[in-house]
Amino acid sequence: MLTKRNKIANWILVVVLIALSLFFLFPVIWMLANSFKTDAQITADMNTAAAFIPPVLNGSFFDNYISILTNTSFLRYMLNTLFYAAVLIVLGIIVNGLAGYALAKIKFPFRERWLLVIMLLMIVPMETIITIHFLFVAKLGLLNTVIGYILPMIVNPFNIFLFRQVFISLPDDIYEAAQLDYCSPIKYFFTMVLPMSKSVVATVSVFTFLNVWNDYLWPSLVFTSSDLLTAQIGLNAITANDNTTMGQTLAVITLITIPVIIIYSFFSKQIVEGVVSTGSKEG
């Protein structure tokens, strides 16, 4: 008797949650459905259920997407951002990885103090020093350059700490064996340490990518009007243009989200682990 009641209660819960999830997702459903419509169609559908249904598949179905990809520089902005992310992932792993390894395995003066400093740096909000970063980059004449954008973003106390926590549990005897083979420490780091720590390398790469892809304030300061814009800043430039229709705006924000969805679906395990272990994805 009780189990039957439980079963009914459970199905009610399922139905309620499905309704709730659809209501929760109405902005996203509306975005997707209307990204395939002309503005006249969007306005006409607004007060009916058709607002949440994509138009019938015909020759002009992808018009908004095609015009965004061919008439604006949006594809270029996306490729720019991919390039910045790739550079920052490689440089970030080298710089932060080496530092994390030094803090974990190499004896150097004041090592424990440095570890404490790194941990203290993790609590400083970036917004505090972004004005000075901007001043530096402007004084060096590096505004609107890739170097000016990338340089302040390479080093990251969070990632140094993350690498250190993983490297400290690596066995020492492999290192000793490598030394017997006359393997230099740098070579050992790249050929042994990093390949043995694929999981943390993946986590740091994914977080770096998401950070670069979604960042708004810093690229908006460094890049003003040029071909160097990141996707998020480019989005702003495109929607600010009076010729951009509502449907095209919805198409742009759909396009910009696709790479992130791909990353999340492939690396959801690393992301959830990173979330739980560091407890903070900024922004």
Binding site: N10, L13, V14, L17, F24, N214, Y216, N236, V252, T257
Partner: peptide
């Protein structure tokens, strides 16, 4: 809940994958 657990986890997570700039642009509309 015993059914569709995976769907619910993904459904309520969807806005998280959208950047603040995207969400802001969408919600202006």
């Amino acid at each position: 809940v015993t059914h569709c657990k995976k769907y619910f986890k993904v459904a309520f997570f969807v806005p998280v994958v959208m950047s603040l700039a995207v969400v802001s642009t969408l919600w202006i509309q």
